[in-house]
Simulated scan of single mutants.
Amino acid sequence: MKLSDMRREYALSALKREDLEQNPVDQFNLWLQQAIDFGLNDPSAMTVATVDEHGQPFQRIVLLKNVDNQGFVFYTNLGSRKALHLQHNNKISLHFPWHAMERQVHITGTVEKLTAMENMKYFTSRPKESQLAAWASKQSSRISARGVLEGKYLELKEKFAEGKIPVPSFWGGYRIKVDSMEFWQGGERRLHDRFIYVKPQLDQSNWDISRLAP
């Protein structure tokens, strides 16, 4: 089959204005819980898009680790490619592709670094294997072979065999402060339902909600 011939109907659900929560974070949490209850694989997985100093966009999959009215949180190596991008351009885009539910959520905003206390609280909650992996990988750097990475991991495992593993100075989290949040629900005959929340600059307590053409 040709790619141009691949298509299907979207008919699982619909989204109406009266269905929406007034706060987009509440609406996101409602959809996230529904994705979890649906049994969706990796419902917290999101595409994170950043832009380098030449204007070249990059995307990668990252796991959401917290969300509340303060923003969306993820963690990474602070020397990684995305972290370097965010140093000179703190604008970011997130995308949750919940295909099985015929839903998408798209978020734009700006990032701020988490505090050392926030980083430590989450790092110490991770499994020891994940803590060691954070130390072992100089994320986004070139390595000659996988064996180099595995060798470093085993070296660190022996080094930290006894006692707690400290938080690496090159590891931490970001909080995305939301500027807009769009909810997309697939619809029949390609008449999809799209609603976007935008926070007015002068009134930070309310969100403008608009329906978008599909």
Rank of each mutant, 00 (worst) to 15 (best):
L156D: 10
K138F: 10
L86P: 02
Q131C: 08
Q33A: 11
R103A: 07
T110L: 01
A45I: 08
A49D: 05
Q104G: 07
H54F: 01
S137T: 06
R60N: 08
L94H: 10
P127S: 05
F160I: 03
A136W: 03
T108W: 01
L94G: 02
D37T: 07
Y75A: 01
T124Q: 12
S44V: 15
M46S: 04
M101V: 14
A133Q: 03
H85P: 07
F96E: 04
H88G: 00
R146Q: 08
L94K: 05
N77V: 01
Q139S: 07
N77F: 10
G55W: 05
N66R: 14
D52I: 01
V111G: 11
F58W: 10
A116H: 13
Q59K: 08
G39S: 07
H88F: 09
D52C: 06
S141P: 06
L149H: 06
H88Q: 05
N89L: 03
N41D: 15
G55H: 13
E118K: 13
G109N: 09
N90I: 00
L94M: 05
R81A: 00
F72G: 06
S44E: 14
K138R: 11
Y75H: 13
Y75K: 06
N77Y: 04
D68F: 11
E150N: 09
S130L: 14
S130F: 04
P43F: 02
K128W: 10
L84G: 00
G55C: 05
I61G: 08
K121I: 03
L114Q: 13
N77S: 10
Q34P: 09
H54T: 01
S137V: 03
V148H: 11
L154D: 12
A136V: 01
K138I: 02
Q87E: 02
N89K: 06
K157E: 11
I61Y: 14
S144G: 11
K152E: 15
K159V: 02
S93E: 10
L32T: 08
L156S: 07
Y122L: 04
T110C: 05
F123P: 09
E118A: 12
A134V: 03
R81Y: 00
T110S: 08
K113A: 09
L84S: 02
L86Y: 03
A136S: 14
Q56F: 08
L149F: 15
N41P: 15
E155Q: 15
A100H: 14
P43C: 11
Q87A: 10
S125F: 09
L40Y: 07
S130K: 08
I36N: 07
K128M: 11
